[in-house]
Design a protein around this nucleic acid. Structure first.
Lengths: 211, 211
DNA sequence: GTCTATAAATGGATAGAC
DNA sequence: GTCTATCCATTTATAGAC
């Protein structure tokens, strides 16, 4: 249009809304899969045509790049914030907790991120950043082990992956209606650190392997 | 075919090998995603043309159906086998352990299963069977809670999902070279039941909520 | 900013010769 | 059983009018 349509909130430059486009795209990418979603689908959801969609974004891959970058930014911000704690076990606990909160807050972005396979350069870049984050977590587990606050009869990398496997699995079923993210974060930390069992319930077979 | 090409192992009927086709397809589906993989890609990997591929299988979706069915059969067999144990906590432990073993043994099939989104009827059927399996697990957790062997301050469905989130995350990183599945299964059970911490390390803030 | 029209490539799938 | 050739639908993306 030619001037008279002030959006609810002012924007830096153009007329329309790139975030609305991104939101719709991410939603569809998650629902049907990135590859199974066409630019026509995205345009249709927004009530515009494909050409108009291309007026707002440069292409399908840019949408993916924006989404995964925002998700990763959230996770790295969480990782940066835990450095205040003295003990490694406390940094780990806070990182687990913050990650759950980020995941809940940016649920759709993180969901998309976790499904990236590495088909294109954009996807490979996202995978590289994810590996970097995994490395941070593994280091924390190792430090907590050296500190003595985490059992050392399990491999650090394995433990790190299992715990964040638990965290990441939330994208498959957590929904805002299901409760406060803070409550969920506490449950995850509890399970990760103390497990399901009530107390020293029996021990089936082999217990002391090496230590 | 016309007679003279005995494969290494006799088959029921035809000449060639449908399993080889399925294997190659599943590998590609996992590597690039189902939708991003074309029938040309599958044929190329096998060293044949697309038409020849269609001589062996009826279509892309049939490949997907065969794969996810085999994965689900493995999981339900595991679920059927735990009924021997008396206590719910033991049935749960065995189901977690068996699931890890099935996942390791049919790694590629299960990986594909866990990525299904529900776009087609085949996928929806797979999702329905997955939900059925989830229900079995949740029931076991509830029974173990009623029994007193599992802490009741966490929601049963949440706990069930988190534990199997941990199990399922294995498809993202477990590889046969990484060790014996039995060892891994033990680690998962240990983490799920007893957690990461060494002992009664400190308790941050809120501990007794309602019970 | 939004549209119609269309380009150019790729997708799943089939026909029919050898 | 495998091939070449081809159909037809869909895809990403662009040109250009309004």
């Amino acid at each position: 249009m030619d001037g008279e349509r002030p959006p609810q909130r002012r924007r830096g430059r153009p007329g329309h809304d790139q975030d609305a486009v991104l939101n719709a795209a991410v939603r569809l990418f998650n629902a049907r899969g990135y590859d199974a979603t066409s630019m026509f689908d995205v345009a249709e959801t927004l009530g515009i045509t494909k050409s108009t969609l291309y007026h707002h974004v440069s292409g399908k891959e840019q949408l993916l790049a924006m989404a995964v970058d925002r998700a990763l930014d959230g996770l790295f911000e969480a990782a940066a914030q835990v450095s205040g704690e003295k003990r490694a076990i406390d940094r780990l606990e806070r990182l687990i907790s913050s990650s759950v909160l980020v995941l809940a807050e940016r649920l759709e972005l993180v969901t998309l991120l976790l499904r990236v396979r590495g088909n294109t350069e954009v996807e490979q870049h996202a995978l590289a950043r994810r590996r970097e984050f995994d490395g941070i977590v593994t280091d924390l587990v190792k430090q907590a082990q050296a500190e003595g606050s985490i059992r050392s009869d399990v491999d650090a990398a394995t433990a790190a992956r299992l715990i964040f496997g638990m965290v990441n699995s939330l994208v498959e079923w957590y929904r805002p209606e299901r409760g406060h993210p803070e409550t969920l974060a506490r449950t995850v930390v509890e399970l990760a650190f103390r497990g399901l069992r009530t107390e020293a319930t029996n021990t089936t077979q082999d217990d002391q392997r090496r230590q």
